[in-house]
Nucleic acid binder design. Structure first.
Lengths: 255, 255
DNA sequence: CCATGTCGTTGATATGCATCAATGTGGGGC
DNA sequence: GCCCCACATTGATGCATATCAACGACATGG
């Protein structure tokens, strides 16, 4: 291996971080939570309506353009995020530029579960993204007084841990075709929680991103996708795939 | 791939679970925590001496022989464990027998962080093992009244999550040699927290286990070990390795 | 004491995926 | 409307690791 770096380390976050558009400041936006589409899926579901107002006042609703950096590995963790729209890729880089994407965050997902002082991964926007942003201290202080919020956070963390174990099985013990099939099924299921069940699976991330998530090269991802399409299991459509034969796709996952 | 099953699914846990030797029941063993070698490393470090007595009364000190099953995947989670001696392998099996070890638990490690009703992995003893065992309800009830214990649990869970991400990078983006080198360094560091720093790295698990952890075959693990030994970076000793050249071994990890 | 089984190592060969290279394709800017 | 560039696809080839096979070391039990 020792690939010629396809993923150069990004510039320092203060430069790389695109100008974020803040649509709503610390005050006067509490009501926005009331019609938040992902509230029931996110941390916020642990809070009473009364608490939610106070909680919302701790956050900023903020928008990022595609490719913006939300979190930079090894930098001090200043903010934590509750994603409300768009997709974020979480990844680690090796010194020589090899990249492993450790997860894709979808609307409702929480970034910064660890509440650690230093980020253990980088995160940037796949497309335009909206989020509720908290300062780490602000959130941390609120957390002190709300054990049920901590419980919810722990619930999310252990769920992440289970997903991480799934991913270890995938990376260590599955073939390329199984990896791609499992990725499509898992992605379908994650979107289903947000948008309801559909045969159309949105894939806003690039083939390179998918490869770096599955431990494959772009070419192999592409080949496996075309193979699935040739076998009439999926159709490749703009920005995603449509599943034609759920049963066969699930069978390929080799659970 | 589609390997002929090297890891047949184990028999039902009630059969497979070896007769556990309970050295101390629910009462009269509180003082044992006082001289527990791993207390400072484990969950228990979150508890005051006064609390510890009550906490200890919830647990049994229990011993398992090699190969005993502590946790069976997809079965109801009855117990959680605080490992005090020995090594436990945590793993998932695919239907065709492929196995991925998702972690090795060392003394001081906690099994059952998720507090979930159903186990998401299996766990069995690599060699003889000792643990403090709690019922899930008992521990869960105690947890209700002790937010700082929950905080500690969350801390451990997010630490596990970071380790899981490390492992994803390893499985997805490292070569066989880098995998083995990184495994040896990581294992050395984990033992160092328990026993202090040594150049001798105990490896009680088999080559097969190491392979199933690193996403490699036994043969490849063996070959990489001999290569490291040939290059005078390590010496293979009974039940482990001795590191001769820490600098070169660390360099091979390709952080 | 030897028979037996498990584990680790080593060698020969096969293969799945990476690598290298070329071509197609769609979107954004001017 | 057209150029440009990033992205996706496809094909040819190579290599890292899996697979298949054999053997030695060691422990266990009759």
């Amino acid at each position: 291996m020792a690939t010629p770096a396809p993923h150069p380390h990004p510039t320092r976050p203060d430069e790389a971080e695109a100008p974020a558009r803040v649509t709503c400041g610390h005050h006067g936006c509490e009501t926005i939570c009331a019609d938040c589409a992902v509230r029931s899926l996110s941390v916020c579901s642990a809070l009473e309506p009364g608490e939610l107002a106070h909680f919302a006042r701790l956050s900023q609703s903020i928008h990022y353009p595609a490719r913006a950096t939300l979190i930079a590995q090894d930098e001090p963790a200043q903010h934590i995020y509750n994603l409300t729209a768009g997709v974020v890729r979480l990844y680690r880089l090796l010194a020589d530029g090899r990249r492993q994407i450790v997860g894709f965050a979808l609307p409702g997902d929480f970034l910064g579960l660890a509440m650690a002082k230093t980020n253990t991964f980088s995160a940037d926007a796949v497309g335009p993204v909206a989020a509720c942003r908290f300062t780490r201290e602000g959130f941390g202080q609120y957390l002190e007084e709300k054990p049920h919020l901590l419980r919810r956070l722990h619930e999310l963390a252990t769920h992440e841990l289970t997903l991480a174990q799934d991913q270890m099985v995938l990376l260590g013990r599955r073939t390329a075709e199984e990896k791609v099939a499992a990725f499509l099924i898992a992605t379908r299921d994650r979107w289903a929680r947000i948008n309801g069940a559909h045969l159309h699976v949105p894939l806003p991330m690039s083939r390179q991103d998918i490869g770096d998530f599955l431990g494959l090269t772009v070419e192999t991802v592409s080949r496996m996708m075309t193979r699935l399409a040739r076998d009439k299991i999926i159709v490749i459509v703009p920005d995603g795939v449509r599943i034609l034969d759920e049963a066969r796709l699930e069978a390929l996952c080799a659970v």
